[in-house]
């Protein structure tokens, strides 16, 4: 190892305070495989859907956690399925860029989340979708999310709806469907 380190130290010599060289790893110190240490098993993405498989569960619209609106008024207010997809995608784009909550999404299957979040909102707005995701409790299990995280997500959803020119009363009608789920989507 030393022959490799020596040129580095020489190169650093002109600096007033040469950086302290880290102790060279010894032969007995192999790099730690943290996934193995914590028993993390990485599943391969499904080549067709691009999603990471989840444990089997019973599918059903009831998993969406809210009854859908009647009529097509809300679906139209959100610009149909195309408008809803833009809004849910934008909500997630804002969330993964938000320093307050981005860490929650870092180890998350965003391909699946984009699909299921769209389905859920589309189903609730009665815009012609079935919800195929898991129920809210199971889907958020172990995320350790807080009320503060939830509020941040709501702010992003509000911004996405505002940018899509959804009227404020219609925005609130959707939020009224989502608000009662707080206990199932937060854990702390």
């Amino acid at each position: 190892m030393m022959p490799f380190l020596l040129p580095l130290l020489l190169a650093a010599a002109p600096l007033a305070e040469p950086p302290v060289a880290a102790p060279a790893p010894t032969e007995t110190e192999a790099p730690v495989d943290w996934d193995k240490e914590f028993g993390v098993v990485r599943k391969a993405r499904d080549p067709a859907t691009g999603e990471i498989p989840v444990d089997p569960y019973v599918q059903g619209d009831a998993n969406a956690g809210a009854h859908p609106f009647a009529g097509d008024g809300m679906a139209r207010a959100f610009g149909g399925q195309a408008g809803i997809r833009r809004i849910t995608d934008r909500t997630l784009d804002l969330s993964v860029a938000d320093p307050r909550i981005k860490a929650i999404f870092e180890e998350h299957d965003m391909v699946r989340l984009r699909r299921t979040l769209f389905e859920q909102v589309c189903f609730i707005l009665n815009a012609g979708c079935r919800y195929s995701g898991r129920d809210m409790k199971v889907a958020h299990k172990g995320l350790g999310t807080t009320r503060a995280d939830l509020n941040a997500l709501v702010e992003h959803l509000q911004q996405a709806m505002r940018e899509a020119h959804v009227s404020f009363p219609a925005q609130n009608r959707l939020l009224a469907k989502l608000a009662p789920m707080d206990r199932t989507v937060t854990e702390r």
Binding site: R147, L150, A176, A179, P180, D182, R183
Partner: peptide, 8 residues
């Protein structure tokens, strides 16, 4: 209860 969340 909660001003915003929980049962309507």
């Amino acid at each position: 209860g909660d001003l915003v969340y929980g049962p309507g």
